[in-house]
Design a protein around this nucleic acid. Structure first.
Length: 801
RNA sequence: GCGGAUAUGGCGGAAUUGGCAGACGCACCGGAUUUAGGUUCCGGCGGGCGACCGUGGAGGUUCGAAUCCUCUUAUCCGCACCA
């Protein structure tokens, strides 16, 4: 037998799998389906990185094991190929972004293949393919139909030097990524998706899915549910009631302590009662980016709104109204009642402006600072609430407000609606026409897909519009409703669009009449396992849950939740302990590792290096160990005794390992599964072993290192592909040894061990322990006052002092 | 500030309904094979001469704690003026 050479055997088996089509999946009612999903990659010019290989290798092992265990496994891959790098490439090279995208996809496909991933390539999807984005556009139209897609004025980042609208990611720190100029905020009419309409269901249905606690918690925080009340404050000007100002508060119990009100600078009332001072403040606030507002969070600023006061509905007293940018227009009503006695921000602001601070919950010292830790407090200075504990007082005040028509119980979410437009070329065109008489008119479904026209320049325009806006022949269109001259929407969708429903398309990727057939969705969905990065928890994962729920509501999706179980891999950190980055020069290229040590060794290393769900430092030495292990498997296979019979000597070791490996793969404990195989190999090496033993061994190793296992399977004279073999079963009684080592403790400290038959009665175990010479010496003739026996494991003896 | 995690040998990490801490691998040390080796094989490997001591630190519960409780320190990750 030749030396182990991954460069020869790996392509050999990749070809064999492809030729046999073993990873191509079709519906089969006779088999249980199992849908394993990984986040599809953005095909960048840089190729696969370790961030891809960890989840892909892990899910590949799971998929391969599940196939052998008899499931009909759907393990698809595709390309999330819209996005800025392709567009920047196009700008630079004056070429269509498709060229760049196609080349990258080809490179990714080749790399993925060379690592031996068992994806079903016959089901590939590409978000930039019109046959795919036809359905992305279709979903958008359905949302528009139901009022979930709408246009609204939203502040955007504006670079005055590039004359360009930037996404938040393109303006880190309030500075244009491209030219370095300071960006400002501008109002722009933008497409929005009403994800907030689904906030409650997105929150409640988390109870119905199996996600890691940290993922659920992050989504809960992001959704940010708060219970409280809306309270109406009458606004007076020139001696009469001119407005009613609604505020949201989580603390209606503190209403007696509300000594002033604050409006967000963007609040309409602030414009109505403007004076030069407030206008100046509003201008300055408008210029600040969100980032700058955040930076200044400690220092309060503001201006009084002159000529108006508000009436505190509890006290009946008039209180002043301010504008300040510590109040956000995007949350609640854009106005707050300020309770400086019990809110740190209000306290600071009140101090700055010399406003009254009233204590309404006893226990703190409001002269020193806001007293906020009030769960167990009692109300004071609060009329009918005096003496009530805080929770009861909140309840009493809410009831009072509702009875008097002064307010009502209310729930608020931090979640904002989703800005669903980019002024870019390389995205799905939004299939809407602007008609002077009909307004926003959706394209008829029959005109989908609305494809991207070729343009001359891919640069955004001077006005910050998409380059599509310059394509007069494309933009000018007759209104689908009235036939008059109208113009197409020229914004495109954000990159999150295509990835919000791709897992449904995999079920039926070539369907021209529906995004997927009902039969295919009934068979394949929901996704059984979805693994992805923590960084997608609050964007992609939430967005796709939202789209899925919408599709469920209109009868397309078959279940209310898309993913039954979500898992999240930890990051791989550079060998120096820092996050991998170009500037640090600590990037590990998985293709280089695979090239040097083989794909199998690379896969094994990725899985063995640490707990899959935790972040781990890449250690170059770990590859050596894994490669060495494979070499050892190879050499042992070469020198195995002929014969198919399994050795009796290692029978129990095998049954233990089968159980361990099977269970660990399901639990994503790949590191311990591989450790168990190393242990097993060590035991095999202690004596003679047959080709049959090797065959069983490579069957167990196959999900992790498939190429070498196929080669050795063939070498051992077995027919067919290992990929098509059944997974071995274990017998529980053979996973246990018939003798056990029992730890003997005295007073909880280990003093000896005794060997005993499994299941020996407690008294006999104690007896054996007491006859151990070491224990006899300690006992010195005394009898134990107490004995604790843990069956087959341990006995603890307590002797009198 | 809020929320979530993590802390175990020289290193990566095992061990969780509380029951022999350090599985497995790396590195290292010794030996064999090898004229050579990113080879293979065998042995050793938490600390301490020892009684013993050891899972970030301090208490506690328990016959028994890496594991449970209280407090605390450090690091990492989200979110962040959310009323």
């Amino acid at each position: 037998m030749k030396e182990y050479d991954p460069k020869v055997i790996e392509p050999k088996w990749q070809d064999a799998w492809e030729k046999a089509g073993v990873f191509e999946t079709r519906e089969d009612a006779a088999k249980p389906k199992y849908y394993v999903l990984v986040e599809f990659p953005y095909p960048s010019g840089k190729g696969l990185h370790v961030g891809h290989t960890r989840p892909y290798t892990a899910m590949d092992a799971l998929a391969r094991a599940r196939r052998m265990r008899g499931s009909n496994v759907l393990f698809p891959i595709g390309w999330d190929a819209f996005g800025l790098p392709a567009e920047n490439y196009a700008i630079k090279n004056k070429a269509h972004p498709r060229q760049f995208t196609q080349a990258n996809i080809a490179a990714f496909r080749a790399q993925i293949r060379s690592l031996g991933y068992s994806f079903d390539h016959s089901r590939e999807v590409d978000t930039t393919d019109p046959a795919y984005y036809k359905w992305t556009q279709w979903i958008f139209l359905k949302m528009f139909e139901r009022g979930l897609a709408y246009k609204a004025d939203m502040p955007v980042n504006w670079c005055p030097s590039c004359k360009c609208v930037l996404a938040n990611e393109e303006a880190p720190g309030g500075v244009c990524e491209r030219c370095g100029a300071e960006t400002s905020r501008r109002e722009k009419s933008q497409w929005m998706l009403r994800i907030t309409a689904y906030a409650e269901r997105l929150l409640n249905d988390l109870d119905t899915v199996d996600y890691p606690a940290r993922v659920k918690q992050a989504q809960k925080n992001w959704l940010g549910r708060s219970e409280g009340a809306e309270v109406n404050f009458a606004v007076w000007a020139e001696g009469r009631h001119v407005h009613t100002l609604r505020v949201f508060t989580t603390r209606p119990d503190t209403l007696y302590g509300a000594t002033y009100m604050v409006l967000a600078p963007e609040h309409p009332l602030a414009a109505e009662y403007a004076c030069p001072e407030t206008e100046e403040y509003r201008r300055r606030a408008a210029k600040k980016t969100d980032f700058e507002r955040g930076q200044l969070q400690k220092e309060k600023t503001g201006v009084a709104l002159k000529g108006v006061t508000a009436v505190n509905p509890a006290t009946g007293g008039h209180i002043p109204i301010y504008i300040s940018d510590y109040v956000l227009m995007g949350y609640g009503t854009g106005a707050i009642m300020a309770v400086p006695g019990h809110d740190g921000r209000d306290w600071e602001f009140a101090r700055l402006f010399g406003l009254p601070i009233v204590e309404v919950v006893s226990g703190g010292n409001v002269d020193e600072g806001a007293y906020t830790d009030t769960e167990n407090g009692t109300l004071v200075n609060s009329g009918f609430l005096n003496g009530l504990p805080v929770p009861d007082a909140g309840e009493a005040m809410t009831r009072y407000l509702e009875e008097k028509g002064l307010g009502k119980r209310s729930v608020q979410y931090k979640l904002r609606d989703w800005v669903f437009a980019r002024q870019r070329y390389w995205g799905e065109p939004i299939p809407i026409v602007h008609c002077p008489s009909c307004g926003l008119v959706p394209l008829p479904e029959s005109e989908l897909p609305l494809t991207l026209p070729p343009v001359e320049s891919y640069e955004p325009t001077d006005t910050g519009e998409s380059p599509l806006s310059l394509m007069e022949s494309w933009v000018a269109v007759s209104c689908p409703r009235c036939g008059e001259r109208a113009r197409r929407e020229t914004d495109t969708m954000p990159q999150w669009a295509g990835s919000s429903w791709y897992y449904l398309r995999y079920a039926d990727p070539r369907n021209e009449n529906a995004l997927a057939s009902r039969e295919a969705l009934d068979y394949w969905t929901p996704v059984d396992r979805y693994n992805g990065g923590m960084e997608h928890t609050t964007l992609h994962l939430l967005y796709s849950r939202f789209w899925h729920k919408f599709l469920y509501d209109i009868g397309v999706a078959r279940q209310p939740e898309p993913y039954r179980k979500r898992t999240s891999h930890g990051d791989i950190i550079g060998p120096d302990g820092f996050r991998m980055s170009k500037s640090r020069g600590n990037i590990i290229d998985p293709m280089e590792v695979a090239n040097e040590y083989g794909a199998d060794a690379m896969r094994l290393t990725i899985l063995f290096i640490g707990d899959f769900e935790k972040s781990v430092i890449w250690s170059p030495n770990a590859v050596t160990g894994c490669r060495r292990f494979l070499e050892r498997v190879w050499h042992m296979a070469a020198s195995a005794q002929p014969g198919d019979a399994l050795s009796e000597r290692t029978e129990r070791a095998f049954h233990k390992a089968i159980k361990k490996v099977t269970e660990d793969i399901d639990a994503l404990k790949f590191n311990t599964a591989i450790a168990a195989l190393m242990t097993l190999l060590n035991e095999m090496a202690e004596g003679a072993y047959s080709r049959g033993d090797i065959r069983l061994f490579v069957t167990l190793l196959y999900p992790f290192a498939p190429h070498i296992c196929e080669e050795l399977w063939e070498h051992c004279g077995s027919g067919g592909l290992l990929a098509g073999q059944p997974w071995p079963a274990w017998r529980e009684e053979l996973t246990l040894d018939d003798t056990v080592e029992i730890a003997v403790q005295v007073g909880g400290k280990l003093r000896a061990t005794v060997t005993a038959e499994r299941g020996l009665p407690d008294e006999a175990v104690v007896d054996a322990a007491l006859h151990n010479p070491r224990i006899e010496a300690i006992a010195a003739g005394r009898a134990p006052t107490r004995t604790v026996v843990v069956k087959n494991k341990l006995v603890n003896l307590i002797f009198p002092q």
